[in-house]
Amino acid sequence: MPMKMKRALGAISATALAALWSVPAAAAWTLNLRQGVTELSHDIYNLHMLIFWICVAIAVTVFSVMIYSIATFRKSKGAVSASFSHNTTAEVVWTLIPVMILVAMAIPAARTLVKIEDTSGSELTIKVTGYQWKWQYDYVDEGVSYFSTLAQASNEARQLDSGVDVYRVENYLLDVDNPLVVPVNTKVRVLVTAADVLHAWWVPDFGMKKDAIPGYINELWFKAEKVGTYRGQCAELCGRDHGFMPVVVRVVEQAEYDSWLAGQKAARQAAAAPAAQTAAATTNNETTTVLVANAE
């Protein structure tokens, strides 16, 4: 079966290429996970590559034996079948070796997992609430809170038969009106929840994804090491427009963050002083109303 061989080898080498060929994130024909811009995302990337290469190594070994058998022990080549039907040594070996390999994988995996789940020592806490179909960002210690929805250009282009060439829309489906803004090199703790159905908050470059569950709070953390704009999407089916609630995070220098925050606060103050207090309260009420509606 030369074709089969080629295909199997092709599959392996294509994936192998993925590792060697590090293309910019937004380019087409991307093959591999992104390295990302946080310690966690680097750890995850390395773990991913480690396991990937172990699997490749096992695949090469196992598939070689298979291909060799297929190529060699053919009746058409006059092969006569042997009569053995077990071999205890071999069976013990190929039970124990995988166990050892798995242990070798489990140790770094467990270490990374512990790190991921450790949200202690965070410097900034943001509450993220998923709605059908938008995100709400709540800077809990600052009293700043706003919604983030799909950018207008994308929204028009994505209507059925809109006639818009989506290639001309910048960051098609990955752009929002009000991105989340965080300072660089700061451990940010994100509290994730939802108001109606499940959502999941995900920024691939931060290596983190957590489900947003109505009535419950989940935690994640990230510490972006590079200034920039990072884009992700809702990653839990949340109904009709699940595909249209992107997550955009702008990571900025501390100074820029401070002035941005001040601007937000000023804007809120301007928008009538007494209303500011109730704004936070209403959002909470909104949440609970929806929850009740769901419970009924």
Partner: peptide, 14 residues
Amino acid sequence: LGGEGTKFLSNLFL
């Protein structure tokens, strides 16, 4: 929901 265990934050915030 009552503020015990690993998801005690649910109580605190919601």
